[in-house]
Design a protein around this nucleic acid. Structure first.
Length: 484
DNA sequence: GGTCAAATAT
DNA sequence: AATATTTGAC
């Protein structure tokens, strides 16, 4: 990802640049507010044309789209985690800032910034990755078998070193499976399977990993004791060794988590509260916090917030706690959620259609597949990985930005039409302060779930072209000619 | 306490 | 190598 900048003192240069960078989403910013110029830029492939006084809103808007874009891309690639995206965006930010700094607006007439995205981002239609969803769902089923739905199991393995005797470090792992009524307060007994994870003489660092499978893998045998494992019933808490326990977020546990989060409202879900609602002792705030962190990262639903003010949209009173997150994606405008129930716009995590599907098992209506891998290491009883999900993950086969929303901030607002010559109100407006830029970008990045401002609807090519011809600018390379 | 991000563990 | 969790810092 990078920002490329081209500053020219004459619009012609800019146009040239635009043409050169057709395939790169380019945003033109200029203090020239001539419809003609704008049209031309758009026609030449600019994704947006912003009038020079770059307001905070405009910036935010742009960045939100960038972030969305980035996230979308990330989502399509299953393995891709959010972080990288974030990083790249951040790096972009730096460049951006740098750019902004260097910017010498005095002379420049037109300046354009192009938001380029990694070349590899192009998705090859051929090989997609749709495994996640299906597997996920499938897994669910598998689990249902053992748990008998209403029982939740919390598994955590405690690893404690046997006595202090350093002689031979023998550590064993205790896997405690406690069951508890889903929502009931009761604290049922729990089974504790102790697995001796004997570690040979400490000397040879080679800890024979022969050790019994920690919970992860043969989870399958929830019900059966594992080979080496021996079952004992104990009063849970007591032996809840105070060592490091790794919480195993089983689907059930996760489900609870999600329910709690939803009850609170995603935006108000904070670790402590969630923990309360979950009523799962044995879990620490940190555990929840961590999970929450992960949770938030995955679902990047756009969620209304005070951010709305800027985007005169009528969602005022929406108790946006639940899933009003019908993402107002600027991105793939094509299908609205109902078209293809299963085709996620946000390939992986976005709150997309398919509510019902996931609803039952995860009680998560809007969040698609939670953790793909997590699902995997529990072997579903029923073999085959059949794509239960059956979701034809359709990756954006087209240029990622193909539908990049135009008109970030009232592109076609009357104001700009008449306003042929912008007059810098405040130096600030013309040149957003670095802090502002930083702040805005950061905000956007940090809250990917915020609603995408404005329905940035792409200016219809037709209208633009029409207008252009009307203006006598017809010698412009047709938009459609290039992949833009 | 909440968040974030680095460090670990798997 | 990629994730899932845990730790620690802020």
């Amino acid at each position: 990802n990078l920002w490329s900048q081209v500053s020219t003192s004459n619009s012609n240069g800019s146009f040239k640049f635009l043409e050169t960078a057709k395939d790169l989403p380019t945003i033109m910013t200029s203090n020239i507010h001539c419809l003609n110029t704008m049209m031309k830029c758009i026609a030449l492939g600019a994704v947006e044309f912003l009038r020079k006084p770059l307001s905070e809103d405009k910036l935010r808007n742009i960045w939100q789209h960038v972030v969305h874009k980035a996230f979308n891309a990330g989502g399509s690639v299953q393995s891709k985690s959010l972080k990288p995206v974030k990083d790249s965006i951040v790096s972009m930010l730096e460049l951006k800032v740098e750019l902004e700094e260097n910017k010498d607006e005095n002379m420049e007439k037109t300046e354009n910034v192009s938001l380029a995205h990694e070349s590899n981002e192009q998705q090859s239609p051929a090989r997609d990755k749709h495994p996640a969803p299906s597997t996920w769902q499938f897994k669910q089923v598998g689990w249902l078998l053992d748990d008998g739905d209403c029982q939740d199991h919390i598994n955590f393995s405690v690893e404690k070193d046997s006595v202090e005797q350093e002689g031979e470090s023998k550590s064993f792992e205790t896997t405690c499976t406690m069951s508890q009524e889903t929502l009931q307060a009761g604290h049922p007994p729990c089974f504790i399977e102790t697995v001796i994870k004997e570690t040979g003489g400490l000397t040879d660092g080679a800890k024979s990993e022969n050790n019994i499978h920690p919970n992860p893998q043969n989870k399958d045998s929830l019900n059966h004791s594992n080979d080496v494992a021996s079952d004992l019933h104990t009063s849970d808490g007591t032996r809840a060794n105070r060592k490091k326990m790794k919480v195993d977020w089983t689907p059930e546990l996760h489900k609870k988590f999600v329910q709690a989060v939803e009850k609170l409202g995603v935006d108000q879900a904070i670790p402590s509260r969630v923990l309360e609602l979950m009523q799962v002792e044995s879990l620490t705030r940190h555990n929840v916090a961590s999970h929450l962190q992960k949770y938030r990262m995955r679902r990047r639903p756009i969620l209304p917030k005070e951010d709305d003010r800027r985007w005169p949209h009528h969602r005022k009173q929406e108790s946006r706690s639940y899933y009003p997150y019908k993402p107002i994606m600027a991105y793939p405008p094509y299908h609205s959620n109902h078209d293809l129930p299963t085709s996620p716009v946000y390939p992986m995590w976005g709150p997309t259609g398919s509510h019902t599907a996931s609803m039952h098992t995860w009680g998560t209506p809007s969040y698609l597949p939670w953790p793909p891998t997590e699902i995997w290491h529990r072997k579903p009883y029923l073999g085959m990985h059949a794509d239960a999900w059956g979701c034809p993950v359709m990756p954006p086969l087209h240029s990622p930005f193909s539908s990049f929303p135009q008109n970030a901030s009232g592109f076609q607002s009357a104001s700009m039409v008449n306003n042929s010559c912008g007059i810098p109100q405040k130096s600030f407006d013309l040149q957003p302060a670095e802090e502002v830029i930083n702040m805005v970008v950061k905000e956007v990045i940090n809250k990917p779930w915020l609603p995408l401002p404005i329905g940035l609807k792409p200016p219809s090519t037709d209208s633009v072209l029409a207008e252009l011809s009307r203006q006598g600018i017809s010698s412009i390379p047709p938009l459609c000619s290039n992949s833009f």
